[in-house]
Design a protein around this nucleic acid. Structure first.
Length: 470
RNA sequence: AGCACAGUGGCAGAGUGGUUAUGUGCCGGGCUGCAAACCCGGAGACGCUGGUUCGAUUCCAGUCUGUGCUUCCA
């Protein structure tokens, strides 16, 4: 079955075929590093992560680039307000961003190019656009002349006329010296308010506009045409539309084949907004005691093109689901002896799982297949009909589910300390002597120490209690 | 205002023109000394109003509500 993705460009699901068979080049619009990423930002990157992991699982090679926007209006404002240097500020939040990605279990991109490290490339690209006649300069700033690009609007399906009328209520354009209110800056001339943040280049003193860095760095690392470009829906217009205009005007080549955009995140049914006080960062949630994998679960478990309603109930439900997964894996590890081989169940559920993801990353159907496998296998384990080898193969299937989703982690070693093992032993003695009051007291004592003991036909099983939100 | 997307059981969230999503929670049962884990069963849903149809949650129209974009917010 072919892999199909919804392409914003065509507004429909299309069969996915990379430019180079077997190799995929993808670009993700990364963070503007002036603050900690909030969970809405992180949803975007988790979507790109799932996409990348699934393509790899399908045997395709993926080269993934994510930019770091480290010069931009808000960053400059923040520097001016705090007195931080640009480098100090952006480095701090870049490191924090990478920490967040690691905490949530995202696979790193292959490259994280930064705008400030590519000023020369950006200037060169702007010069190319100048040579092609699609720019003009006003008061030291270089603007892109939108009407020079006849395909403008093909991604967002905005029509230029509509945008023009939308801008009609503004001040006379002539007063700005900009030919058209829709034109955007490629290069911004230095302003006193920028303080020490500027570059002296052939274009004069100033800094790059926002859109140009993505055109520049994506093509620098991925070529003039590449396969996939991801980002949040809010970037469709104008950011990605402008990227297309810049890139295709400069190269004459189609820029990106598949544009994929994730919907936004709601929190407790409301949009995230500072005024609601619900713009959580990952750090906020960790401080509240939530498990990062449970957070990953909630952020990834909704189809990427659907609005995802982040609720604390959902995080707690996710933590329970993860406990179920862990218990299942522990059970598989303990399984010994002869029995059926499960090969049919493994094959059919893996097929359902992977074909669901082939269908525009239908994660819900994929997770349903995984949980059906767990339930059916638990039933067989209850019946004692699973062989050690089958359990091993089932565990390997869970590894593959984990490879794609990051939601089926291998069970950690449950090496209980000696004092716990001693108590477990004492409890067994008490049970053998039918001293159940003492046995139950020891069980409570162990619980208080953070260990659960469960009796199985093969003896007691000791599990570390999962951290859960109190 | 224009253009999009969405509204499913307590919560989260798929899907389908007629038959169990899945997870979590709840109720009952099995297993257990009791639990836990696990299994089985159950209740509970498709915003509202019309239309098409033998039959609609699924298609169409309208309506209400929410969300996004409309120049730099993932």
């Amino acid at each position: 079955m072919a892999i199909r993705f919804y392409n914003t460009l065509t507004r429909q699901k299309e069969v996915f075929e990379p430019l180079t068979p077997g190799e995929i080049r993808m670009y993700t619009c990364g963070p503007t590093v002036y603050n900690y990423a909030h969970i809405g930002n992180l949803r975007s990157y988790l979507f790109a992560d799932l996409l990348k992991r699934h393509l790899k699982y399908r045997g395709l090679r993926v080269f993934h680039v994510m930019n770091i926007t480290d010069v931009e209006d808000k960053i400059i404002r923040s520097c001016v307000e705090t007195g931080d240097t640009l480098d100090a500020l952006t480095e701090r939040y870049t490191q924090a961003f990478w920490e967040d990605l690691e905490t949530l279990g995202l696979e790193p991109a292959d490259e994280y190019p930064r705008a400030t490290h590519h000023i020369d490339d950006i200037v060169a690209l702007i010069k190319t656009l100048q040579e092609k006649g699609c720019t003009y300069t006003h008061e030291g700033s270089v603007y892109y002349r939108l009407r020079s690009f006849s395909d403008y609007g093909k991604l967002s399906h905005h029509r230029l006329e509509g945008l023009e009328s939308g801008a009609s209520g503004r001040v006379q354009k002539d007063e700005y010296g900009i030919e058209d209110a829709r034109d955007f800056a490629l290069w911004k001339a230095y302003d006193e308010a920028d303080g020490p943040i500027y570059w002296d280049t052939e274009l004069g003193r100033g800094r790059p506009g926002w859109h140009i860095e993505c055109s520049c760095m994506s093509m620098r690392y991925l070529g003039e045409s590449f396969d996939i470009h991801t980002g949040g829906v809010d970037l469709v217009f104008p950011h990605h539309e402008n990227e297309i205009a810049q890139s295709e005007a400069a190269t004459g080549q189609p820029f990106v084949r598949y544009w994929m955009h994730n919907a936004h995140l709601l929190v407790e049914g409301r949009k995230m907004a500072k005024s609601y006080g619900n713009t959580y960062t990952l750090r906020d949630l960790l401080e509240m005691g939530y498990d990062p994998i449970a957070i990953r679960y909630v952020l990834i478990a909704t189809h990427y093109r659907q609005p995802n309603n982040f609720t604390f109930d959902a995080v707690e439900a996710a933590a329970e689901s993860l406990a179920r997964i862990r218990d299942f894996r522990l059970r598989l590890q303990e399984t010994q002896g002869e029995g059926s081989d499960l090969s049919e169940a493994i094959a059919s559920h893996e097929k359902a799982f992977s074909e669901a993801l082939d269908d525009d990353l239908n994660i819900s159907a994929a997770l349903a297949a995984a949980f059906e496998f767990i339930r059916e296998t638990n039933r067989r384990l209850d019946a004692g009909e699973v062989s050690e080898e089958a359990a091993h193969n089932a565990n390997a299937l869970l590894d593959r589910f984990d490879q794609v989703t990051g939601l089926f982690p291998p069970a950690e070693e449950q090496s209980a300390p000696d004092e716990v093992l001693t108590l477990v032993h004492e409890r067994q003695e008490a049970r053998r002597a039918k001293d159940f009051a003492r046995a139950d007291a020891i069980r409570d004592q162990l619980l208080a120490m953070g260990w659960a003991v469960e009796d199985t036909p093969d003896g007691p099983r000791v599990k570390r209690l999962l951290e859960r939100h109190a």
